[in-house]
Write a protein that binds this DNA or RNA. Structure first.
Lengths: 346, 346
DNA sequence: TTGTAGGCGTTATCAG
DNA sequence: CTGATAACGCCTACAA
């Protein structure tokens, strides 16, 4: 590994001049610059980032904090972010928090001082904790929950997405549309559930349909997975509440619902239409393929890194948080439209 | 951020003594050590890893190179590795290679000198390239392909796993067992396909069943996904080849097969039993739930980090590669055993 | 058992 | 436009 010193000697200049060239600073004659560039190429010199960081205090390291990777939604988000970070020449340091505030905070106290920025999908963080995280390191949260703190955040179109989904179903003639994934605890970390329920009400009201509490299903846990989706759907069926459509607040729930509905020998979508939210790969490949809201993961990644860049450059407003809501897409598939094997060519 | 210097002043000793205490070196009196520890606690001092690294050349950074994260198998592997790395107090720097040799090599030339170690799931790397990667940085490959180079590798029980699966099916009375995912190009990067096909032949031979080429399906691409699994299965059905069981070399293929088989109005497992390999979450939750080989992801992560630790400590033999094959588990579920909705409580 | 001197590779400061 | 000098925070080598 050659150093700046080596390059300087070879080019017959001082190390500082090499530094200037490497960092594209002005105030170097064209002739000198060429000499230095040649020496750099000959020695295959690459600046040592560690030494640079020691001197400047800045790193090109960005932390990415996610609850899990084994849930496809997070994995797909992580992939989008890593690809985007690459475009910004940032190195990503991924940490799994398990959705526990403790771990979310530990990341900051552990690596915080040596991170140029942090992208976090927070779950357990309180308002106060979110503020202190953002104070310790330039941070962008990806979260459906609004924090009472001046922090940057990228969110999905939770409310508008579900609203559009209910409208979609209503326009297809469904009138008894159930909701799956509601939360009545009111706990702030369940914001996604609250917003999506709001969207559900909006959609009903747009269509002139009544809001019927008996069609609104809670899911036992905050874990929106297939199993709980199936259980809740079975409950709905067993209670004998008539319904002809089901909007789940997450694809995993919807996939479970698909299972439970078919188990009960109801046909999809003739007797019951089903839809989800997240547009996981699994949705496209489900059987029948699942109508879902695509939350714009790629856009979320793009916006998150754009916001973070501002923060890191201190270009961003200091005492106020910014919010970006990504555009959504309604992916209509067999579970509401009918047809067969659309994913043969999906 | 306080420095060793600050701590030294506060404790009334020299910086070197603080260094000794921090690094647990011997040759410090109990009294001094206590004074220093107290000062460290009071100032909440934490050694600056960047400065340390600059001096020692060592980092606690381990690279993790995977083709994708959007395929559940890789995401589950990544999660297992990150959790294991945490136990070793290593920080993981994840890079996505897309399975392209170019990107796999770029990671090394980019971050190589500043990585303490590298865990790579290589796809495009040639023998020669694998050797040069391992030479540049302590490396453990997670790969089914054997390299002609002295590199450490953790692999799955490809052959034994499929063999066991075929035996499982034969013991249930199936006699015309098809294979899905074979590769006849012989290209070394398709080693998993080759080994699993070997296991398929072993299993047939164990059961006294003939090997019938017409029951062996290739998949168009190296991408083992649902779509290709479904297509190949449709082909098999359309060709009119009688078969009563199907061993897919990956769960994604098997999930596609599940779809195609049901599409053809064949019942599972009565008319056709289906099984996969990987034991994805999706397998447990498929409909019917999918019998599969669990490749021991947790063990793979453990072994990979154990091997890497040796390499990094230079404890490992220098001119020879080590191979660890993880134990597998046959997860028998509805797609071969029958029964209904086992995953209700899975 | 403890301390001093020096340098890892880079960049900031200031002088030329 | 260019260069000398010092410093970032830590650790190695050697001395006391």
């Amino acid at each position: 590994m050659s150093t700046m010193h080596d390059v300087a000697q070879r080019a017959g200049v001082s190390p500082k001049t090499v530094s200037r060239v490497v960092n594209g600073e002005s105030g170097v004659s064209e002739r000198t610059r060429r000499k230095v560039d040649a020496a750099i190429a000959e020695l295959d010199f690459r600046p040592n980032p560690i030494a640079r960081n020691l001197r400047t205090g800045r790193t090109g390291l960005v932390g990415l904090a996610l609850p899990h990777l084994s849930q496809p939604f997070y994995a797909e988000l992580a992939e989008a972010i890593m690809r985007e970070a690459e475009r910004h020449d940032l190195t990503v340091l991924t940490e799994l928090t398990g959705g526990v505030a403790e771990a979310e905070l530990a990341l900051v106290s552990e690596h915080g001082p040596y991170l140029a920025g942090l992208l976090m999908y927070p779950v357990g963080l309180s308002d106060e904790q979110a503020r202190s995280v953002a104070q310790a390191v330039p941070t962008v949260f990806m979260s459906e929950r609004a924090y009472e703190a001046p922090v940057d955040r990228v969110a999905m179109a939770n409310r508008e997405g579900v609203r559009a989904m209910v409208s979609h179903m209503a326009s297809l003639g469904y009138t008894r549309i159930a909701a799956l994934g509601a939360d009545h605890t009111g706990r702030p970390e369940r914001a996604a559930a609250h917003l999506r329920l709001d969207g559900y009400r909006d959609g009903l009201s747009d269509a002139g349909l009544p809001y019927l509490p008996e069609l609104v299903c809670e899911v036992g846990t905050p874990d929106w997975d297939r199993q709980h989706g199936a259980e809740a759907t079975r409950g709905l069926i067993e209670r004998g509440v008539p319904f002809d459509a089901l909007v789940a607040f997450a694809d995993a729930l919807a996939l479970g619902a698909l299972h439970a509905v078919q188990e009960a020998d109801l046909t999809i979508p003739d007797q019951v239409a089903v839809a989800g939210f997240d547009d996981l790969d699994d949705a496209r490949y489900a059987c029948p393929s699942l109508t879902s809201i695509a939350p714009g993961t790629a856009q979320i990644a793009r916006e998150a890194l754009a916001l973070l860049n501002d923060r890191m450059a201190l270009t961003a407003p200091q005492n106020t948080g910014r919010l970006v809501v990504a555009d959504f897409d309604l992916m209509a598939r067999e579970s509401t439209l009918g047809g067969v094997a659309a994913w043969r060519t999906a």
